[in-house]
Amino acid sequence: MILVLGATGGIGGEVCRLLKHEGTPFRAMARKQEQIDCFHKDGVDAVRGDLDRPETLTAAMTGIDTLFLVTAPTQAQVAQETAAINAAKRAGVGRIVKISASDCNVRSKIPWAKSHALIDHHLRASGVEWTILMPTAFMQNFLWFTKPVAKGYLPLGAGKGSVSWIDTRDIARVAVTVLMQDGHSRATYFLTGPETFDMAEAARQLAKVTGHGVRYLDLPGPVFRTVLRLTGNSRWMANGLVAQFSDMVAGHHDIDPTGEVERLTGQPPKDFATFLRDHRDAFAKAA
């Protein structure tokens, strides 16, 4: 039995959908009873558990042999995922499939990059078998900028750097493949989209899907931070994104396409044009 953490999020929710489609037994974990009720209405086994309350995790993991671990980037991420790993070990879970990040490093100035590195080290030393998936930046992050794009601007602090952006649906597809197969223990997979492009190219593709001109604005750090705050990001998240774009992207440190998505799943990852077509309505409604 597979237990899916982060089951109400973007990647975890897609993992649940794909596992259900495949007819693979799994259980979703969520914090709120109304979320549990929604899963039950959809015919999905679900259990309450809270990563901020480690005492709730052992019961949630009873009878589980494989754990899918993904959490949102927050200041509590290290404590939450470490608690999940420890609970899995106590419950006798045999393997953990974890979503990490391609830029993780214990000395990184990017908070979630450092967090993932610390958690990955803890997982590898836990004694539980593991598979770690390390995706690059998510295409879905462009949805933060639907309103400025509607006004003809893509405001980022990325310089001329390029990124191998990946659709989170492809991350979920790889995760489900790994969860359903043997042979991935102690493996680390770097996941990317099929192409690398800079923000000027992103703006050109956004212009095609929206039907109006979109210009990339390369913002200084303080201005980019202000834009991020105005688009609903917390101060912690905004500071982290400024660090990520100024270092990893503008500094040309992101990785090139790896081909791992197609190698593992047999299907190529979605390109940016496909992502934009699939989310055309989100950009259209912001206009």
Results as ranks from 00 to 15, higher is better:
159 G>P: 07
138 F>G: 01
162 S>C: 10
162 S>I: 02
16 C>E: 05
127 G>F: 05
140 Q>L: 07
124 R>T: 10
64 I>R: 00
97 V>G: 12
8 T>R: 05
193 G>R: 02
120 D>P: 13
130 W>K: 08
121 H>P: 04
110 I>W: 02
129 E>Q: 14
139 M>L: 05
139 M>S: 00
213 G>E: 15
75 Q>V: 12
262 E>S: 14
228 L>C: 04
187 A>D: 10
134 M>P: 00
287 A>Q: 14
188 T>Y: 05
213 G>W: 12
282 A>D: 14
123 L>I: 03
279 H>M: 09
53 R>Q: 15
206 L>Q: 06
102 S>A: 12
232 G>N: 07
11 I>V: 14
36 I>G: 11
176 V>L: 08
160 K>Y: 01
75 Q>Y: 11
95 R>T: 02
89 K>N: 06
97 V>R: 09
62 T>W: 05
225 R>S: 03
225 R>E: 13
230 L>W: 05
156 L>Y: 05
160 K>W: 01
102 S>F: 04
189 Y>R: 12
240 G>P: 05
230 L>N: 10
15 V>M: 11
73 P>T: 11
212 H>Y: 12
135 P>I: 05
164 S>K: 00
107 R>M: 11
44 V>R: 07
2 I>D: 06
197 F>A: 06
109 K>G: 08
87 A>K: 02
103 D>H: 14
117 A>N: 02
170 D>A: 11
26 F>P: 13
236 W>T: 14
197 F>I: 09
57 L>D: 12
259 G>F: 01
23 G>Y: 09
119 I>A: 07
220 P>Y: 04
268 P>Y: 06
207 A>I: 01
201 E>Y: 00
39 F>D: 00
22 E>W: 08
118 L>V: 09
277 R>A: 15
218 D>I: 14
257 P>K: 00
21 H>V: 07
56 T>A: 08
165 W>I: 03
14 E>T: 14
